[in-house]
């Protein structure tokens, strides 16, 4: 494996959790709900995924537990913002605080426990080709995240259900008047977002750095949230943005290791700057990239 192949593999590893969590949030926001609780759901997903994997000895059960944890927390969020029509920003922030605290509690007994990382896929023949490790030797999560991105693209752009979801996100009053089930669709979207965040958390504690430690999400939930905005709520741009961010993160570390003489603080800021600039440039000159019309507004169905 050459250095470039190694770099590409690291880029993909760094981008994958962002991509999964952000893709979930993209669907939530296209349905008109702003969930700021990704960081909290990721943390609980990481804790539950790791705990379940240790207790059961099964990676699959760990992943399922992480998804379940994301579903439960996002269900709670849905209860607040859909059932009680509470302020979405406040509820989302509360969810993050709750999730970070809860993850510490759940993971307390597992601090310092060690587990093997999920091995990458190995396809005889293909993986050994030049560059094959990048294309055919990734972790199962990576392939899933790519499938997720394209499935979301198809769902939002090509399916009737996706059209319904988008119209609810654009104008929930009109959608309601047309007889579309606003709250049900939003509930489904929120749960999907929760499952994705939980899964992204499991990726952190089972693949990326296979141990549990409180605070190990280290702000990735917030970066995912920002990526959704900068990708102007489009799946393909989000895919591009996540990989760009992951790539810039890894490249700046390599630039430092190669001691190119660029100040490390500037290099540390580079991923953020590069991602913002690239996505803003992409948005300029096209149809104006606006947020879903009903984003963040509570909806109370009239009788």
């Amino acid at each position: 494996m050459g250095v470039w192949e190694a770099i590409l593999i690291t880029v993909v590893t760094a981008a994958t959790p962002l991509l999964i969590a952000a893709m979930g949030e993209l669907v939530v926001e296209r349905a008109g709900v702003l969930n700021l609780g990704i960081e909290g759901m990721m943390a609980v997903g990481a804790a539950c995924g790791f705990a379940a994997a240790i207790l059961s000895g099964s990676t699959i059960l760990g992943i399922l537990a992480a998804i379940a944890a994301g579903l439960v927390l996002s269900g709670l969020f849905a209860l607040l913002v859909l059932g009680l029509a509470t302020n979405q920003v406040a509820s989302g922030l509360a969810l993050t605080i709750l999730g970070l605290g809860l993850s510490g509690l759940i993971g307390a007994g597992f601090v310092g426990t060690q587990r093997e990382a999920i091995p990458p896929v190995y396809i005889p023949g293909l993986t050994d080709l030049p560059g094959g490790h990048v294309l055919f030797g990734e972790n199962p999560f990576v392939y899933f995240s790519l499938a997720l991105a394209f499935a979301t693209l198809w769902f939002l752009g090509r399916s009737r259900a996706g059209l319904t979801l988008r119209s609810i996100g654009e104008n929930h009053a009109s959608a309601h008047a047309l007889g579309l089930p606003v709250l049900k669709v939003r509930l489904a979207a929120i749960l999907f977002g929760g499952a994705c965040a939980g899964l992204a958390g499991a990726y952190l504690s089972l693949v990326y750095t296979p141990f549990w430690s409180p605070g190990m999400t280290a702000g990735r939930g917030w970066i995912a949230l920002a990526l959704v905005v900068f990708a102007s709520w489009r799946p393909l741009r989000l895919l591009f943005g996540a990989y760009l961010f992951g790539g810039a993160t890894v490249l700046q570390l390599h630039a430092q290791a190669a001691s190119l003489g660029i100040p490390s603080q500037a290099l540390s800021a580079f991923p953020y700057v590069a991602t913002i600039v690239a996505l803003v440039v992409m948005s300029v000159g096209r149809r104006s990239a606006t947020a879903p019309g009903s984003l963040g507004a509570p909806f109370v169905p009239d009788r």
């Binding site: 250095v3 690291t10 590893t13 430690s213 890894v250 290791a257 190669a258």
Partner: peptide, 15 residues
């Protein structure tokens, strides 16, 4: 930041 520390270590090992 476990993820970033891991990436930094990978970059150093790769070089």
């Amino acid at each position: 930041d476990p993820g970033k520390e891991a990436d930094a270590a990978k970059a150093l090992l790769d070089q």
